[in-house]
Amino acid sequence: MQVSPTEEWNSVTADLAARIDQQLSFYAGARVTLDVGSRPVRKDELGSVKALLERRGLALWAVMSESATTLDSAQAMDLRTSQPKSAAPIQSTDMSAPSSQEDGTPGTLVKRTLRSGRSVKSPGHVIILGDVNAGAEVIAGGDVFIWGRLRGSVHAGANGDPGAVVCALDMTPTQLRIAGQIAISPTDKRHKPKPEMAVIRNNRIVVETWE
């Protein structure tokens, strides 16, 4: 959720509370990433927002800001932090040897079963430790890994990446999409559950044993 970087902090929090209260059922249980822009926010100010969210059944999860003060406050509260991409500092480039650090790519981890009506959307990869039940959906810009049964719908490479893959320990999706391709499961499948991976080959989604 984005809040104004310039307005009085009191009215920012009041405004935030009103926005949530208007759509409480939509926000219920949500983990909130707060984008405060360039505003320096003290730890006690962040604490008041955290309490405000928790009273409404939401959790403050991460804070985005360009301000070092804000990022320090957030880190002191064990919150995740990130800087907007444009403002990310440039890593020093004068390293003498190639770094052994593997940077990886950002993703979203969900440690529970997604039941009917639940939806997870992420610009990066999505990892689900649990099942994705029929009626639930996962939409990811990158890959989708399901450490459980996939019975709902998944869209990997949702921004058009045909190289995205979907993996599950038991692959019986309602509908599977990768980039612009759509596939559905055979209806009569009385199959033995096994780990499988869906990829695009020759402009079609194919499912292969996951090894």
Partner: peptide
């Protein structure tokens, strides 16, 4: 399917 949805809502409401 609807029971599944209900259980999800209960979980979301702690």
């Amino acid at each position: 399917r609807d029971a599944d949805r209900i259980i999800g809502l209960l979980e979301a409401n702690h």
